[in-house]
Design a protein around this nucleic acid. Structure first.
Lengths: 130, 130
DNA sequence: AACTAAATGCAAATAATTCTCATTTTCCTA
DNA sequence: TAGGAAAATGAGAATTATTTGCATTTAGTT
């Protein structure tokens, strides 16, 4: 069942955890989610591996929500919604990320655009009904 | 020359400072900019007033750049460019903030959209040429 | 003038993240 | 296959941006 070498069990567990959730979790959320299966995993290891995945382009950071950094295993451009009440982060796959705008930005500001992030803020379904 | 009551001199100075700069500064940047004219201003006062302005809708937070919160006195929707090399934040007034997308988001995710933030990341002009 | 409420400075407290260092695990090679 | 370099990890200390408590000053009100 467990085929990955022991050295990478935790690294893989962190990446798998991030890939299998829709929650766009923080380091601490990942740590909590992993605790049942990896009771001895350290929070520092989660932080370290997230930084490593990010540096290697395997994951993306969404920036901070309420001062806490949130991560996404989906590195394809897509749109997010952040609930300002419960801090939930949702994907909005129905909305197109505007293309060609990056070119306009480069021309008008004389910069080299690498990525684009479109985020909506507001109240999620459950927070809006309460 | 100085007509504002002493009680609000610092509060006004903070808001003026934010309104007069293009730098989208952090609390500490504002504190540094104010030091020449207000040598006795406290960093806590800057933080407190920024929180107050934000809570009262007078300014906006852009979120954090490299772990540091940045502010904008322009509360009108507009697009930003963030240099991942020097942390500069620029306005991109040439680019339209997509309208009507908020409606699509509300319909597809069942949420109540309040704002929208479009940000480009990359290298600014000077960082790209060096 | 006296009283209340707001604003401020200072320093301590908080909390997310990073770092240090000793230990373990893996990988490479002779 | 042993031995050593390199990478990964845990634990806790250190760092740092931000917030808070408290005493003091300032403004507004009667």
């Amino acid at each position: 069942m467990e085929s990955s070498p022991k050295q990478f069990q935790k690294r893989n567990a962190i990446l798998d955890c991030l890939r299998q959730t829709e929650r766009h979790p923080s380091a601490e959320m990942i740590h909590d989610m992993l605790r049942p299966t990896h009771p001895d995993i350290s929070l520092a290891t989660v932080y370290r591996n997230l930084a490593w995945f990010k540096a290697n382009g395997m994951i993306r950071s969404l920036g901070t929500v309420n001062g806490i950094e949130r991560f996404d295993a989906n590195t394809q451009p897509h749109v997010h919604f952040i609930c300002t009440c419960c801090d939930a982060v949702l994907d909005l796959p129905q909305i197109e990320v505007p293309r060609n705008l990056g070119d306009t930005a480069e021309r008008s500001a004389g910069c080299r655009v690498k990525e684009c992030q479109l985020t909506f803020f507001g109240l999620c379904g459950s927070c809006a009904n309460s």
